[in-house]
Amino acid sequence: MTKPALILHDPTLRDGQHAVRHQLDAQQIRAYAAAADAAGVPVVEVGHGNGLGASSHQVGHSRISDDEMLATAREALPHSQLAAMMLPGWATSDDLRGAIRHGVDVVRVAAHCTEATVTERHLGTIRELEADAQGVLLMSHMASPDQLADQCALMVSYGAQGVCIFDSAGHYLPHDVSARITAITKAVDVPIAFHGHNNLGMAIANSIAAVDAGARVLDACARGFGAGAGNTQLEVLVAVLERYGHHTGIDLRLLAEATDLAEQILMPAPPTIDSVSLVSGLAGVFSGFKKPVLAAAEQTGVRAWDLFIELGRRRVIAGQEDVIPDTARDLAKQGAHR
């Protein structure tokens, strides 16, 4: 039986920014984008790790502006689509207009997994500007399959032409993914995407589970470049999909060269599952909290492991970085020192 064709969405130049404090420069963006384009990667996502308009003291200043990042990438992507992400509260409609003016083809509007209503205005604006509007649910392990299905249906009613769930904490096992994607396929009639993180070493297996349950778009990064333990590893995912008989349209040999280049020029070292990334996945805490958690633990003398467990207990989500030092101080007062 012919396996369905899949679309690979590559956020190396956006999610990878978390791993280098959003300090990628124009030369790095240009070089990797050109290599990904040559390999036939269909969609390349670019920007600050937290998306359009997010460069700030709270989550980190980008080395270069959104405008420069997008203009640089657009020139280097004659064949691939250019994507951007935004989170309401960081980006505005003006940021969307600027991004699309720079040639962005796909804009993803992301919200916490139970807060799809905040995407309505921005999804409508993207449709009006004639770009591909997609809705994203972050920290999706914090919602049940039926809740996610309802939230995805809301985003489609607002104009989303595709929906995506993020395993932002790398917390899922394959059966978790299967249940959620299956529920979403029954609720919407648009392409469904899955974005995995590798904290428990399950990103590839979870991505295959998503496909088997009906997802037709998969996110993955060169060498897994991303927050914490990193994302689904792009070149490995393409190889595994080929073994399963899925067509991606990507030249795996050229992709391997592109990901070799990414390791050389983008990252100090490829992501690894260290003890901090592991506990982040176990606790169900956003992978991008790794660096601020380590900093807060060092300042207060508490164990990073204990701090992650407590953040998970408090159900802290992305965007609440200011809670981390407060939680660390609370643990220190309780005597939870190293």
Rank of each mutant, 00 (worst) to 15 (best):
L331V: 00
V188H: 14
R180E: 13
E45A: 08
L70A: 07
F286V: 08
S207A: 11
E298T: 10
K3M: 14
G226M: 09
C221T: 12
T114D: 14
A222I: 05
T259D: 15
L254D: 15
P145L: 09
C221G: 03
G249F: 01
S168T: 15
P271D: 05
G170C: 11
E298R: 15
A283P: 09
A35C: 10
G335M: 04
V20M: 06
A262N: 06
A33C: 12
A262L: 06
A110Y: 00
V211Q: 03
V323A: 11
A283T: 08
A205K: 07
Q151N: 15
R108P: 00
A215Q: 08
G226I: 07
S168N: 13
P145M: 12
C152S: 14
A133K: 01
R314T: 02
V188S: 14
V240L: 08
M69Y: 06
V240S: 03
F308Q: 07
G201C: 10
H112V: 00
V43C: 02
S287F: 03
M86T: 03
G249H: 05
H18R: 04
G40Y: 08
L77I: 05
S140G: 05
A91K: 00
Q58F: 11
L252A: 12
M139A: 15
E75Y: 03
H247L: 05
H22W: 09
L6K: 04
V240W: 09
D10M: 03
M155G: 04
M267P: 00
C164Q: 14
A143S: 15
A35R: 11
M155Y: 12
I273H: 04
A111D: 05
G60M: 04
S178P: 05
T232W: 11
R21H: 12
D212T: 10
H61M: 12
E298N: 10
I208Y: 09
R63I: 00
S280V: 00
G245R: 03
H246A: 04
A131T: 03
S140H: 07
V217A: 00
G98T: 00
V44I: 03
A227E: 10
A210H: 03
T300C: 07
Q320Y: 05
V104E: 00
G135K: 03
H171M: 06
A269V: 07
S178V: 14
P174H: 13
G281S: 02
A36S: 11
V43S: 01
S144V: 02
P268G: 06
G319K: 05
S140T: 05
D176Y: 15
Q17F: 08
G224V: 07
G312K: 07
T92L: 01
L311H: 09
T125I: 02
L307W: 10
A215L: 02
L77K: 04
A35P: 11
E68D: 11
A283H: 10
P268M: 01
V323C: 04
H57V: 09
L294W: 08
A76S: 11
I317M: 08
